[in-house]
Amino acid sequence: MGKKNKWKPLTYTVEDTPLQENVTVEEEDVRQMLNLSYEVIEKTVAKLFSSSNLVDHPFFFIHANAYVLVGTKMFYPCEVAVLKFSLQKGVEDTYHTLINPGSLPVGFAHDAQAYGEVTHRVPYPPLKEAEPSLAKVLDEVQQFVWGGPKAVRECRRRSQFAGEEMCLPPLYTFYDKELFHYDFVNEAVAFDLMQKLTMSSDTPCRFLLHPLAKLLYELRRTTSGAPAASGSEWSSLRDAQEALQRDSFLYTPNIGCEFHERIDAPACCSLSLVKRWALTFSSHCSAPFQGPCPSVPGGAKQESPEASSTSGEAQQGRSEATCVSAPPRRRLPARALPALRQPYASIQDMKHNL
């Protein structure tokens, strides 16, 4: 078997250190871009902190669900959510939509239905309210991150005047292969969806996708100036990854989309996930602020970093009437498992942000 064209999924430790060597050029690019991405995040947070703009700077989290993976690289998306977060305000705004990707290739409808039943619960064939136009989804995402149609037009005008492509603000996402709602490697799903969205437009638009755990780690290190309020110090990126993996706000009520709340299955909802990430950020990165942590609009309760480690276990003891049952951890059929994907636009884009 030839190694040059053979995709082999990388095995990483929680420190993102490869446990086995890979021979493909693409995978080496992924490794290089991950390091560059870390450097971009470190410099971004340091610059914002030194200029006193960190507390109100907006960060954008993204999560996407997919029906199925066809081949090794093509996902068929079914849902996306983007969240605007700041340390000062917590969740500032959210965007969410179900997506109609069109007809699946012959033989994949059953895989989509089987996977959906144990994870995101978005049915196939798609619901009537699912958006069939990727160009419209891109336009809505652009309006969301840039602040409305006028801002999008102005950004487009400036880009055309400068002879450059538009570039969305950095997007951050996270995945944990051991959790039920990350059977699809979310970085790969989000990256593939953003590729489809940007390619659907007549106006070129670039994007950058960064690891959410690294952002959490850098914000925590920067804002933990008050040890009594910030809890125990984090010694490595692993602490941030474990905080996100813990998913302490899994059972927070009324933070999913209308569809998932209606069927009582918000655990895998993309909108619920990005809000839970924001709650995790607020609970671990609010030391410099006076008063309670920022929260999700609607009354989601915040927890201290110390309490968050046990909150998931405590909430599991609640009655079924007040808690959302988490689906079992089940794997996709072998042909539906994703290969390692490149979660960033390009090495050149990463270096441009340094």
Rank of each mutant, 00 (worst) to 15 (best):
G2M: 03
W7V: 13
K8G: 06
K8D: 04
T11H: 03
V14W: 04
E15I: 00
P18G: 08
V23T: 12
T24P: 01
V30M: 05
R31C: 00
L34M: 05
N35C: 05
I41T: 14
K43S: 14
K47D: 11
F49H: 14
S50K: 14
S52E: 15
S52H: 15
S52A: 15
H57K: 05
P58R: 03
H63A: 05
T72H: 10
Y76N: 04
Y76E: 09
P77A: 05
E79R: 08
V82N: 00
L87Y: 00
K89F: 03
E92W: 01
T97L: 09
L104K: 13
V106R: 09
G107S: 08
A114T: 15
E117S: 13
V118Q: 13
T119N: 12
H120N: 08
R121L: 04
V122E: 10
P123E: 05
Y124L: 07
P126L: 02
L134G: 01
K136T: 10
D139R: 14
E140P: 01
E140N: 11
Q142V: 09
Q142G: 02
W146T: 06
G147H: 08
G147S: 06
C155V: 04
R157P: 02
R158Y: 01
R158M: 03
S159M: 00
Q160W: 07
F161A: 11
E164W: 12
M166K: 08
T173D: 05
D176Q: 06
K177M: 02
E178T: 07
F191Y: 06
K196C: 02
L208E: 15
L212R: 07
L212S: 14
L216R: 07
L219K: 11
T223F: 09
A228S: 13
A229V: 05
S230G: 02
S236C: 12
Q241P: 08
L244R: 08
R246I: 06
S248L: 07
N254S: 11
I255V: 15
C257V: 09
H260F: 06
H260K: 11
A267N: 15
L271W: 09
S272C: 10
F281P: 11
S282N: 11
A287R: 12
A287P: 14
G291A: 04
A300I: 09
P305L: 14
S309E: 03
T310G: 12
G312F: 09
E313M: 05
Q315H: 13
S319V: 04
R335F: 11
P338I: 00
R341E: 02
Q342T: 08
I347S: 10
K351G: 06
H352F: 05
